[in-house]
Simulated scan of single mutants.
Amino acid sequence: MKIGEIMPLDREITLNEGKSQISVIVANVGDRPVQVGSHFHFFEVNLCLVFKREMTYGYRLDIPSGTSVRFEPGEEKEIKLVAIGGTKRVFGLNDLTCEQINDNTKKKALKHELHPKSWTQNNFWRCSFFMTKYSNEFKVKAIKMVLKGDSISHVAKILNMPDIAPLCRWISHYEHGGIPQLLHKNRKYTPIFKQKVIEYKWLHHLSLNQTAAKFSIPNTGTISTWEKLYHSYGFSGLLAKKRGRPSMKKSKSKNKVNKPKKELSYVEQLEQENYQLRMENDLLKKWHALMKQWEKEGRH
């Protein structure tokens, strides 16, 4: 016998021999292809796959381990399923089972809708990819459930939220300012306010979530962007900039009156002086280098 040598049996091995098997017709009514792995609990597959879902509870694809079946958009085909073996305990996936497969857990699973992390809407005939946006009523409802004693993870699961991060952020805002802060609208921030937020965060060693709640800023990414700009450009990086592309149209007016130049702010004056000093410094370096070269060549 050699190391790594494969010694097959003289007979063929029947795949999933003796296990319960069923056939089901599956149609992909979505606009994206869906691929299902060999050991995925077929009852919990993507909502864009339409079939008699109830009869597939406790079954998986009858294919070799590590392989998969692909369903193209609009495709309909018959597939074979085989009963899940072993201890028949199924966890994760779309969180419809999360325990041992039996008649009791099947009744519970049938009462739930698919979890949003399947990335499709709960609509068999119009499946599309989406990003979740939450209404004010939804936020208030979630907060009230947490205040009644339900855990954050439990509330997120009951309300079909794919992530607990938004709920944690809402709770932080509620704790700092109640319902008004939770439902605050978009605001415009001055450069001085931005600087105050950043320096307060650094001084008190706060996280992005804590800082956002403290100053009623809805998105932690906003503060993160301010920090990067402040690190790179100082206070001038926090100044408001015009959005959009500059106009490409040229003025047709020949008798254009020159408007008086706008006075520079103190920060802009310092930046302009700094730029001029750098230019002078570079010019002096080049001049000294040229003088040394002339001395070597004997020029005067």
Rank of each mutant, 00 (worst) to 15 (best):
P33V: 05
R32D: 10
E175H: 02
V69A: 15
E12T: 10
K139H: 02
K107I: 09
K285Y: 02
N160M: 10
H112C: 08
D163F: 03
R70F: 01
K254L: 09
K194H: 06
L183V: 07
N258F: 00
I158S: 14
K19D: 06
Q276Y: 01
H231Y: 04
P162Q: 14
E295G: 13
H154K: 10
K261W: 01
K106L: 05
S65K: 14
D150P: 01
R243T: 08
Q195M: 14
Y134R: 05
S65I: 14
D282G: 05
S224L: 11
L61W: 04
R11T: 13
V29K: 12
K139Q: 12
N258T: 03
H288P: 02
L238C: 09
R187K: 14
K117V: 00
R32T: 09
E17G: 04
G149W: 03
Q100C: 12
Q35G: 03
S224V: 02
W226R: 09
N104A: 10
D150W: 03
P64S: 12
K256L: 13
Q35S: 10
P218L: 08
D103P: 00
K296C: 00
R126Y: 11
L81P: 02
C127M: 10
K117N: 09
G234F: 01
S251W: 01
T211R: 11
S216V: 03
Y233I: 05
N102M: 04
Q100T: 15
L283M: 11
R60H: 05
K259N: 06
S172F: 01
K133Q: 06
P166K: 12
E76S: 15
K196H: 15
L81C: 03
E280S: 09
W202H: 13
N160W: 01
T211L: 03
Y200N: 14
L61E: 15
M145S: 14
R32N: 11
N104D: 11
I198P: 01
G92T: 09
V197I: 08
G58P: 03
C127H: 12
H41M: 03
E273P: 02
I143N: 13
W202L: 05
P116T: 05
F138W: 08
T87Y: 05
L9F: 15
L277R: 08
K292P: 01
S153N: 13
V29M: 10
G237A: 12
N46E: 09
G149L: 06
L206G: 15
S224P: 02
P191Y: 02
K250N: 09
S20R: 12
T225Q: 13
S38A: 13
K250V: 09
G92D: 15
D95C: 12
Q293C: 04
V69T: 15
K2A: 06
H184I: 06
K296A: 08
L206Y: 13
